[in-house]
Design a protein around this nucleic acid. Structure first.
Lengths: 257, 257
DNA sequence: CGGTAGTTTGATGGACCTCAATCGTAGTGG
DNA sequence: CCACTACGATTGAGGTCCATCAAACTACCG
C-alpha cells in the first residue's frame, strides 16, 4: 500500500540539504489578465470589485521541472499556489521513506490551503511534469480580502470546497472495490479537465501507476491490471502518457457507488 | 464495508417528510460568555476585537436527542454548528440505503463547513446521544468577519484545519492495516477530548461499533475483534459506552505509520 | 419480560497485496 | 546513432488479511 519514495530516502530531518531547495525554479512576473485560467481561479467580476482584487496582487509565476518541489513538509507557509500548467502531487513521506499521495492538482486548482491553519506545510508538493504555478502571497491575499467582500466569499467557498473534495476522496477510497476506485479516479479527473475547457475523454496522465495506486490506496500492480482489463474491454485506451476514455458514460456508471 | 442505515430506508427523494424535520429540537438563547468551551471555539481575545465578535451574534443553542438530525443532505445551508455537548456524526447515504460515516464531531468542534461552497449540505448530521449545538448563522458570521480581522483569520484557520484533518483521515484509513486504523482512531479521539479539558485516557464512545467501522472503512466484526484483542492484551478496557485507554503511549506508538 | 439492536466470536471464502520475472520506454554517455 | 541503463508497466503465482455469513450472547426499552 505504501510505496517507496523514488527520491533518495534521506532522514526526514536532513531532507532539505544546503543547496537552494528550488534551484531549478525560474520566477517571473505573471499577469492574470492574459491568463487562460482567469475565469476559473478567480471570481468572475460582477462588479469592478473583483477586478481590483485581481490587479492588486504582485503575483509571480514559477516554473518547475519534473520532480521539483513547490514546497516541502515543515517549510513555513507564506503563499498559496495556483496551478497554471502541468500537474502536481501532494505527498506525505513517512519516517521509513514510504510516500503516500494525498492529492493531485491540475490547472486552475489552488493548493497549499491546508497550511494556513498551522502556518507550516505538512506535506511535499511536487511537479509531475514541466509545470508552472502562480504564487499568491498569503499576506497580500488577506489584506485584499479585508477590502473585497467578493474575494472574501470566494475564498471561503474555495476552502469549503477543499473540505468537501477531501470528503469525496474518503468516500471513494473507502467504500468501493479497487475497480470502482480507479474508474472513479478517472471520472473525477475527467470532470476536472472538462471544467477548464479540456476534452473530458482524453486524460493526460502525468502520474505513474505507482502514484495513482498510492493515491487510491492500492498496489500499482492492481491499478495496472484494472487499466489493462478496461482497455481489453474497450472502455479505455491506455497509452503510456495518456488515457483515452472510450465510453465516458459507461465509466461513470461503473464508478457509481 | 457499507452498512445498512438503521433508520427506515425511505427513498432519498422522500426522506424529508412533511413533518417539521427538527420537531424534537428545542431552541433557546445561548451565551458564549458562560460557555465552558468559549476558549476552544472562538479566538482568544488578545484585543477587545474578539470580544466584540463574540457578543455580536444572536446565537441560539439547539438540543437534540439521540438520532435527531441537525441537517440532512440536500437542505439549504445557512448556519454553521458548534458542538456544545454530546457527539455528532456526518454521514452520506447512498441510493441503496447504505450509510458511510464521514466524520465524528465532539464538543468544541465546528461542522457544516463543507456546505459553504455549494450552499447546500451534502450529508446528514446526526446526534449520537443527548447533544446540543450552538447555531451560528452564516450571514451574521460573514458580516462580523468583515469587521473583525481577528475573526477572519480565525475562520480561515478553522477551514484550513478542516482540510488538514480530512487529509489525516485519508492517511489513516488508506495507509495502514485494520489494527492501526482502530488505534489511530482512538488516539485521535483521545487528543480531541484532551484538547477540551477531558481526561485523554477515558473516551466516551457514543458511537456504535458499526459506526466506527463505517468511519474506518472496516466491518463492525473486525472492529469488535480488534477491540477485544486489545482488551485482552491490557491495552484497553472496553465497556459498552466507553473505552478506557490503559497505556496511551503504547497505543500511540502502535498507531504510528 | 419479550423484542430489538448491538456486540462478540467462529468458519470460510475472496479480493487484493506481495514477490518475481519480463517487457517496453526514456534518458544517457560513448 | 546506438548500446546501455534505469525506471515504469505488465503479467503471473501464491499467500494473507479482512469481509461475509452465521449464531450466540448481552443490553436496553417499551
Amino acid at each position: 500500500m505504501l510505496t517507496k519514495a523514488s527520491r533518495p530516502a534521506a532522514p526526514a530531518s536532513a531532507r532539505h540539504p544546503t543547496r537552494p531547495p528550488h534551484a531549478e525554479d525560474g520566477d517571473r512576473p505573471a499577469s492574470c489578465s492574459t491568463c487562460d485560467l482567469r475565469t476559473v481561479c478567480w471570481p468572475r467580476d460582477p462588479a469592478s470589485d473583483a477586478r481590483i482584487a485581481l490587479a492588486a496582487f504582485s503575483r509571480t509565476e514559477r516554473k518547475l521541472g519534473r520532480g521539483a518541489a513547490v514546497y516541502r513538509e515543515g517549510e513555513a507557509f507564506d503563499s498559496l499556489f495556483m496551478v497554471r500548467q502541468g500537474v502536481f502531487k501532494s505527498v506525505r513521506v513517512s519516517r521509513s521513506g514510504d510516500e503516500k499521495v494525498i492529492a493531485f492538482h491540475v490547472p486552475g486548482e489552488i493548493f497549499g490551503l491546508d497550511a494556513i491553519g498551522e502556518g507550516r506545510h505538512m506535506e511535499d508538493a511536487i511537479a509531475l511534469e514541466e509545470s508552472a504555478v502562480c504564487v499568491i502571497p498569503y499576506a497580500s491575499l488577506v489584506a485584499e480580502i479585508t477590502r473585497s467582500p467578493v474575494l472574501q466569499s470566494h475564498m471561503f467557498r474555495v476552502l469549503s470546497a477543499g473540505i468537501a473534495r477531501n470528503q469525496g476522496v474518503v468516500l471513494m477510497t473507502e467504500m468501493v472495490d479497487a475497480e470502482r476506485r480507479v474508474y472513479g479516479f478517472l471520472s473525477d479527473l475527467s470532470c476536472r479537465y472538462e471544467a477548464i475547457g479540456q476534452p473530458p475523454d482524453r486524460i493526460p496522465v502525468g502520474m505513474t501507476r505507482r502514484e495513482i495506486a498510492s493515491y487510491l490506496g492500492l498496489s500499482h500492480e492492481t491499478v495496472s491490471r484494472i487499466l489493462g482489463r478496461a482497455a481489453r474491454s474497450g472502455l479505455l485506451a491506455v497509452a503510456p502518457r495518456a488515457i483515452e476514455i472510450r465510453d465516458l458514460e459507461a465509466l461513470k456508471r461503473a464508478a457509481e457507488i
